[in-house]
Amino acid sequence: MIKNIDKYKRDWFIDLKLDVLPISFYIIRKSLLAAVTELRPKLHGNVLDLACGVMPYKEFLKNDLIEEYIGIDLEPTEYHNDVKPDYYWDGNKIPLDDASVNFVIATELLEHYFDTNHILKEIKRVLKPGGTFFFTVPSVWPLHEAPYDYHRFTPFALDEYFKKSKFSSWEIKPLGGFHYHLALSFALWNDYRLSGKYKKIIKPFLNMFLEFLLKKDKKNLIFKNGEMYSGLYGFVTK
């Protein structure tokens, strides 16, 4: 298994009660934590973690400038046995006042919300003027939480959605580049399609190959024909 699993990712998997950490989960969470780390020094004031699940990044993100960290999620699910959100919502209207938070964090949410225009409108509503919406979305990932898995966004689609929602500015970045895309694809093939005996045979070779791909990866910030990415994240300003 790839070494040096970060404490916060390790805690997240314990919360989900997974006995074995799949390689693909490690790879995707590695890129997500890198994006969240970029968000960390920016946070202040009131922070909303929307569709928060077990709030895996809460302790990591805390700083003295955050006045309140609010978790909001759907009615109780298997995620909420030990960690409960501050508020539940109906999936339609966020139960907060207009212009009440400085940041909205939505990691791996937008692909599950069919009406992208509506959720962006709600996020913008609760943000204070100049507030920031931080998001991540997958590109390479199997269908999950079926049937509530609706989208795989391109940066150009997100650009149009943010423009239509009349945000003032936004920056969209790749979670991982071409090599990361390939590493995640091979890891998913290993985790979801190979039988146990074949996994044992290829494990040492696969681990070396994945380490090579992750080290070689470069994230091209210019999206153009021929580019591939493992997922997207960004900062959107009201």
Rank of each mutant, 00 (worst) to 15 (best):
K121L: 00
K121S: 05
K121E: 07
E122L: 00
I123S: 03
I123W: 07
R125N: 00
R125L: 00
R125H: 03
R125M: 06
R125K: 05
R125A: 06
L127R: 04
K128I: 15
K128T: 14
P129A: 08
P129K: 12
G131V: 12
T132I: 10
T132A: 07
F133I: 15
F135G: 09
F135A: 10
V137W: 02
P138E: 10
L143I: 11
H144G: 07
E145Y: 12
Y148D: 08
Y150G: 05
Y150L: 07
H151W: 02
R152I: 01
R152K: 08
F153C: 03
T154P: 00
T154L: 02
T154G: 02
F156I: 08
F156H: 03
L158H: 00
E160L: 03
E160K: 02
Y161T: 05
Y161C: 01
F162W: 00
K166S: 13
K166E: 15
F167S: 11
F167Y: 10
S168Y: 12
S168R: 09
S169C: 14
S169T: 15
W170T: 13
W170V: 15
K173G: 12
P174S: 08
L175Y: 00
L175V: 10
G176M: 07
G176D: 05
G176K: 00
G177Q: 15
G177T: 15
F178P: 06
Y180E: 05
H181F: 06
H181N: 15
L182E: 15
A183T: 01
A183C: 12
S185I: 14
